[in-house]
Write a protein that binds this DNA or RNA. Structure first.
Lengths: 114, 114
DNA sequence: GTCATGTGCAACCAAAGGTTGCGGGATTAG
DNA sequence: CTAATCCCGCAACCTTTGGTTGCACATGAC
C-alpha cells in the first residue's frame, strides 16, 4: 500500500527529462552524455547530472570505453520501477472503484428512501 | 508513446508528499490543509502549497465552508493520471519485452553459428 | 465584544535542475 | 613524437521548487 520505500525510484522516473533519457537509451541501445544531450533540450552537463541520479538508483549503468562512457539501461531495475508504477496506479484505481461503488449505494438508498 | 503533453500531471503525482496527500484525501473523503498537515511530516503551509499545485492541474478541488476550506479529489482527473501512469509503464514494459526477445534471438543465432 | 482557530501572504532557506567556463585524459592528424 | 581534437569531469553561479517561520485577517465559539 505504502510507497515510502520506493520514493527514490519514483522520483528518479518522476522527471520528464529522465523519462525521455530512459526512452532514448532503450530505443538506441545505450548512449553517452554527449549523444543523449544532442537529442534533448538541455546541455551535456545537465544530462550528466541526470545520468548520475539514474546511476545512483541503479536504473542505468556505465561502461567506460576509451574516452567515452557508454550508459545502458538496467532492465531488471526498470522492470521493478514499472512494477511500482503500476502498483500505485492499481491502488488508486481500486480506491476509485470502491468510492464509486459506495456513491452508487448511497444514491440507491436515497432513491428508496425519498 | 510520448509523455510530453502530460508532464504536468506526472510531476504533480511525482512528489511523494503529494501522493500521500492524494491517498489521505481518498481514504478520508477529503480534508483541509490543517487536517492533512497533522498526518504529514510537513507544515500546514507546505501542504497548502502542494494543494495549490494539485488544484492547478485539476487533481483536487476546494470547497470553502465557513472558515475552513475542504479539498476533495477530482476522481475523473485522478483516473486520467492513473491511465497515463499505466500507459508509460506499459510502453516501457513492451520495449523491455522486445529487447528480451531480440536478445534471445541473437543468442539462438550465436548458438547455431558457434 | 473577546478569544480561539483556520487561512492566506511574505520573507527567508536549502536542495535540485540548469547553465557557462575551465582543465584533463584519450584519440586522431601531422 | 607533437599537436589538435573530442569527450568527459569539476567548480561556480543562477533559478525554481519544497520547506520553514512569522504575521495579519476572517470566521466561529463563548
Amino acid at each position: 500500500m505504502s510507497t515510502a520505500i520506493d520514493d527514490e525510484l519514483w522520483s528518479a522516473v518522476g522527471d520528464p527529462i529522465r523519462r525521455r533519457m530512459l526512452d532514448l537509451l532503450l530505443s538506441g541501445g545505450g548512449g553517452t552524455a554527449t549523444t543523449l544531450s544532442e537529442q534533448l533540450p538541455v546541455t551535456r552537463q545537465a544530462v550528466a547530472k541526470h545520468l548520475g541520479v539514474l546511476d545512483r538508483v541503479g536504473l542505468v549503468h556505465a561502461t567506460p570505453s576509451g574516452r567515452e562512457r557508454l550508459y545502458e539501461v538496467d532492465e531488471a531495475q526498470l522492470a521493478r520501477a514499472v512494477a511500482q508504477l503500476s502498483s500505485v496506479g492499481a491502488a488508486w484505481d481500486a480506491r476509485l472503484r470502491r468510492i464509486k461503488r459506495i456513491a452508487e449505494a448511497i444514491q440507491r438508498a436515497q432513491e428508496q428512501q425519498g
